[in-house]
Amino acid sequence: MKPETLESLLIDRAMNELQPEVAELLDVYLAQNPLAGAGVARIGDVIELAQQAAAIPDEALQSGFAVKPARRRSWMDWFQTPRIELVRLAVYVALGLALGLSVASVWREPATVFVSSPKPIIVARARAGEADHSSAQFWSLAAVAAERQARSEAGRAVKHDRLQWDSLFKMPRLEKNQ
C-alpha cells in the first residue's frame, strides 16, 4: 500500500468516516504491519490535539471563510483592471465615434422645420351711430356669416417661417416668410 493511501485511510478512520468493512481490512493490514500502525497513533494524537484547540473560542480560528467577504471598490482598482477590459472599452468608444460620425453625415443636409406663426386675432368693432336694424347689423345673420367667412380665410392664410439648421455645430436661425 502506498504511504499516501495509508495516510488517507488513517485520517478517514480518525475522523470516523471509514466504512466498517474498509476499517476491518485496514485493521488486518495494520496487524500485519505493526510499524505502519505507528502512524495511527500519530494521526490520532494530531486530531485529538486539533479538537482541543478548536474547542477553545479563538477569533483567529474563525476569521476566515472559504468565501471572501464583499469589499467596496476603490479608485485604485481602476489601475488593476485587466487589459482586456481596457481594450473592450476602446472598441466601444471607437464604435460609438463611427456611429456618431455616420449619423452626423446624414444630418449634414440642411434641415427645414416649419414653425407656425400665431393666427391673427379678429376683433369685432362696433361703430358708433350704426345702430340701424338692417341685415348688416352686428347680431344679424348676415353679420355672423361674414365674420365666420373672415375667420376661415384668416385660418387659411397661416404663414410659415423656416428654421434653418445647417450643421449640428451651428446654432439654428429662423427665416421669416415674407
Binding site: K2, P3, E4, E7, Y29, A36, A38, G39, R42
Partner: peptide
Amino acid sequence: LNPPMNESIAKHPL
C-alpha cells in the same frame, strides 16, 4: 507538530 510520518510508513509498503 511531528516529523513526517511517511518515513515509517514507507519502510513497510504492502
